[in-house]
Write a protein that binds this DNA or RNA. Structure first.
Length: 618
DNA sequence: TTGCCTTTGAAGGCG
DNA sequence: CGCCTTCAAAGGCAA
């Protein structure tokens, strides 16, 4: 996955088609019956696995390591390290580099990639330690540093290059970040300065800060477009009644994820508006409307709209769209299923307390919102938000299916990493080692970097990241260990840890086969069906048209050159993105991602189709 | 142009 | 503590 800045634009603007679900007109009276039917049909909407395999097998690249450590002088390595498949080695660390602090995965959230203050001595302090960094591949250890220990689990800092001098606007799906990253780091505090315009205006006009949504509101927002399509309803009152009915039909577990989201939103809201309370808005709504009535024309409304755009506009809302009908399908999906795991909730709190100064933020049980100097830009953390940071909405590009797909994959990685299976203490492959190994992966870090500065990510990316990387990543996180509940003989792991060395001459299918053969008594496969599917899928990844690395000498020129076989023209980019969209869609289906994304008809955006058609016609 | 409708949950006020 | 009110989203509709 690589592209120039313009090509990442292409990625970003690959818009989702408006939802085009097959409308099944139903009587609301049948709603109860429909609930289970819908769930079943959604589960059955996975595209054929074979298609996913075909599509996913597009590219193969060497693994790009993370950027050189910010605390060390730029290593005199070539832009493309033949050993590591390195990349962005010629990115100069200016100004102060940021440090992504890699923590233990939070509850239902991506592991926090925390922007931390690199300190005054950026040449020395961030130098990677000489000590061992458990769980980190050897060729990556120079890019990390231990950052502490939590419950016996070490975590580490991941050093990345600094943000560009003119950081780009973030797409809406990233706007959950607590502070706008387009602002330069405050040299004094190390954090992002607050939006002065918004702040000043808020002081001036006391901008209306909305309440954070509760769990049902999040669910309502997610379900409304579906209900509209399924029942062919338009009135919100009727729709809300249906959604309310569905909400009550949900189990506690199903509702839990929405409560988690609401908790996250509440924490974020509390951090962004520490002085705000619900009584702040008490009576204000009617009061505002009364004021609006008494004031002239649309000024108050414009003010309110501006307030929305500038300060508290939910990321799900497309700012330029005033058409409710068109807007609904473009809504961002809410944060998707989170793993309700108290242990990680607690860990999150500990981490928060561990990494921030006192009184920086209220104590959050989940997905703590960090002070400006330690902003969590992890993809899933971005997804976790529905509140946009200040001023990013106006010109923010749309989010494409691909963006969501990538983020969803990351989220799924999180889910895998935070699943019970990965936390069983008896497994040698779980816990910090596996987590850190996988989270240190280039794709994961690249995705995080992409999310931190999407417009420049590909500019800085001197080496492509392809599906081989994703393959390695996904494969690396697969629990290559028997599941205790399926073992019939012993608890002794039958497989070596899925370290790079152990996998050196192994393919997923080989190991998959070996899972049946090598032991004396193994009537039950130790792998779940999902794992098998993933292994099979990953094993079938093929070399694709982007398998050859780009020439690092003039990367951007080459990438944009239509004469170059290896270039990323808009057409090849479209093809590539198309494959990502469909491939990830299939992959997400295997991972049982909720149907908000895994609807096959949405896997290829109209924009992508258009680009593909252009490509074919040329 | 504005408020109502309609849902659930959170939060604050009040007795 | 329990009850009540308001507000989060949002799009049609009546006044």
């Amino acid at each position: 996955m690589c592209a120039t800045g313009s090509q990442i634009e292409a990625v970003v603007i690959l818009l989702s088609d408006p939802l085009n679900p097959s409308v099944s007109k139903m009587d609301i009276r049948d709603e109860n019956n429909h609930i289970s039917e819908t769930m079943q049909s959604e589960e059955a909407s996975s595209p054929p696995e074979d298609a996913a395999v075909d599509i996913l097998g597009q590219t193969s690249y060497t693994l790009p390591p993370p950027p050189f450590p910010a605390g060390t002088p730029a290593p005199p390595q070539p832009a493309s390290d033949p050993q590591t498949g390195g990349f962005i080695s010629n990115i100069l660390p200016e100004p102060a580099p940021r440090v992504y602090q890699q923590l233990v995965p939070l509850m239902g959230s991506a592991p926090a990639h925390l922007y931390s203050q690199p300190g005054t001595d950026r040449q020395g302090q961030l130098r990677h330690p000489e000590g061992n960094v458990p769980g980190i591949p050897e060729n990556m250890r120079q890019y990390v540093r231990p950052a502490g220990e939590l419950h016996g689990v070490p975590f580490w800092d991941f050093v990345t290059p600094p943000p560009p001098s003119n950081p780009p606007l973030l797409p809406p799906f990233l706007t959950g970040a607590p502070a706008p990253p387009q602002s330069a780091l405050d040299p004094r505090t190390g954090g992002f300065p607050k939006n002065r315009k918004c702040e000043a205006k808020q002081d001036e006009d006391r901008l209306y800060i909305k309440k954070p949504p509760n769990a049902f509101m999040i669910y309502l927002k997610e379900q409304r477009p579906k209900v509209m399509a399924e029942l062919n309803l338009t009135g919100s009152a009727a729709i809300n009644a249906v959604v309310g009915k569905r909400w009550r039909a949900l189990s506690k577990d199903q509702q839990a994820k929405y409560f988690d989201q609401a908790e996250t939103e509440s924490c974020r809201h509390a951090t962004e508006h520490p002085d705000w309370s619900t009584k702040e808005n008490y009576g204000k709504k009617r009061k505002r409307t009364r004021n609006r009535t008494s004031s002239t024309a649309s000024e108050p409304k414009q003010e309110a709209q501006q307030a929305k755009r500038l300060c508290v506009m939910p990321a799900q809302t497309q700012p330029s769209s005033s058409s409710s009908v068109a807007k609904e399908p473009l809504e961002q999906p809410q944060r998707q299923p989170t793993v309700t795991n108290l242990r990680y909730q607690q860990s999150a709190c500990v981490q928060l307390q561990n990494t921030q100064t006192a009184a920086d933020a209220p104590v959050c049980q989940v997905n703590p919102v960090l002070p400006a100097s330690r902003i969590d830009f992890s993809p899933s953390a971005s997804l976790a938000s529905s509140a946009a940071p200040i001023q990013l909405q106006k010109d923010a590009p749309f989010v494409s299916d691909t963006d969501e797909a990538l983020l969803s994959v990351v989220e799924q990685l999180d889910l895998l990493l935070t699943s019970e299976q990965f936390q069983q203490p008896s497994s040698p492959l779980i816990g910090p080692q596996l987590n850190q190994t996988s989270l240190a992966s280039p794709v994961y870090s690249a995705l995080s970097t992409l999310c931190a500065s999407p417009d420049t990510f590909f500019e800085n990316q001197k080496e492509p990241i392809g599906f081989a990387d994703i393959q390695d990543d996904m494969w690396s996180i697969l629990p290559v260990t028997p599941q205790p509940d399926t073992l019939s003989c012993s608890n002794t792991p039958k497989y070596s840890p899925n370290s790079p060395a152990s996998l050196e001459n192994s393919s997923p299918s080989i190991l998959l086969d070996s899972s049946v053969a090598p032991t004396e008594c193994q009537p039950v496969s130790p792998f779940s069906e999902t794992e098998k599917n993933m292994m099979s899928l990953l094993n079938d990844l093929k070399l694709g048209p982007f398998a050859q690395p780009l020439q690092p000498s003039s990367p951007q020129a080459d990438w944009s050159s239509p004469e170059s076989d290896q270039s990323f023209t808009p057409q090849t980019t479209a093809t590539f993105i198309h494959s990502i969209e469909e491939g990830l869609s299939s992959l997400l289906n295997l991972l049982e991602v909720p149907p908000f994304f895994a609807e096959p008809q949405q896997s290829c955006s109209s924009r992508t189709k258009s680009l593909l058609e252009q490509s074919n016609s040329q």
